[in-house]
Amino acid sequence: MDLLNNFTLIGLPYAALVLFVVGSIYRYQATKYTYSSLSSQFLEGKQLFWGSMPFHWGILVLFLGHLIAFLMPESLLAFNSHPVKLLIIEISAFMFALIVLVGILTLFIRRITNPRLQVVTNRMDLIVEILLILEVIIGIVVALNFRWGSAWFPAVITPYLNSLMILQPDISAVASLPSAIKLHIVLAFTIILLFPFTRLVHFLVVPLHYLRRPYQRVIWSWDKKQVRNPDTAWSITRPYEGVPNFLQKLVPSELAEKYMQKLKGPFRYFK
């Protein structure tokens, strides 16, 4: 039993976290092209609405809920001290779990019944979907059988996760939890472990920067003014407007490029 606990609650989480970080970064660096949400709305749009919308919004809320319990356990406990508030949190979390379940089941059924979608489905898509369904169902079972998760999560799970974070894993409390909860944890880490190998990576490239960028993008393949300036001819790095030559040498060219583009230089935005 100890061995199993050590493996699932210490070994697996560390393996999952390492693979998640290294794998995602490596995949981004090596095959950036494969980072895509691989949307299938173009092949089937109606059913997708009833699957994708509830699933994504629901899972976002649930994810945030778990994250808050992990990052701010005290505030959550303080908030929960009022029974009405506790009830509100629990009921709404449960509702969202049901919404997610409806969503993911719809997505799964849509994927396996529509002949067009089968063409764009691979093994990992199915594995991830099945794991997510199991995870949500187990989550719901846990919520039903072991009430007030928002009260015991901060007390039991958060310390466990923290102990993992500071590299001093302490599983004494979690090891004695009911197996449904442990299964929920194990599945969660399994999904994290598989993350970089699936389409889930699109979560890492959520385009929030869109909100900050100007609408139009114009890219110059070279600095259009410098190219004709006789003073800057023939240098090893691309010259940047207004930056003395020796400074350009000090800063790695990619870095300089990135920041100079933000100020002025090759990238020009309007509006």
């Binding site: 385009p207 869109y210 609408y215 993008r217 114009v218 890219i219 110059w220 259009k224 090759p266």
Partner: peptide, 13 residues
């Protein structure tokens, strides 16, 4: 170009 959330579309200067 304006609609692309990722900023993948651009106009060549």
């Amino acid at each position: 170009v304006a609609s692309c959330p990722s900023g993948a579309i651009y106009k060549r200067g």
